[in-house]
Amino acid sequence: MKRRLLIIIVIIFTFNLATPTQQQKSNNSDIQIQKAWARPAAKYTNSAFYFVLENNSSKTDTLLGAETKISEEAEIHESYKKDDDRMGMRPAGKIAIKPKSKFEFKPGGFHVMLLGVEKDLHIGDKIEVVLRLKYAGKIKAQAEVRDIPMTK
């Protein structure tokens, strides 16, 4: 009797581990992250994380924020033109991704700012950032540290 109970507990525990996780959600075909890369940064300074977010679903989803173990904070930011000569940067809040569309987070535009990186990010390093979306939930993205954008 005790052995049966133990088997049941083991089965339940195993099943719980297999329930939808960030990893499984990253395979969600409705939302795809492509061309993810990040800038090099020395420890305690800032990096920027760039990617293309593709919404294949039939409804608008919203990027609510990002989190990562690689930096103290991760915020959605936007570089903007103040005038012909001057550029600025500001927090961008939430970003709506329309149905059947792509949204590019790219140099000189929207990006996820990785504030206060916990270690040196050298060219060629790999980092992980989790994006939080309103409907798709948490999606893990792997990014390579580079000094030029991903082209493929």
Binding site: T45, N46, S47, A48, M87, M89, G108
Partner: peptide, 13 residues
């Protein structure tokens, strides 16, 4: 300024 993660690295690159 080095806290700039976007425009200044572009210019530096």
């Amino acid at each position: 300024f080095t806290n700039c993660p976007d425009i200044c690295p572009l210019s530096t690159n």
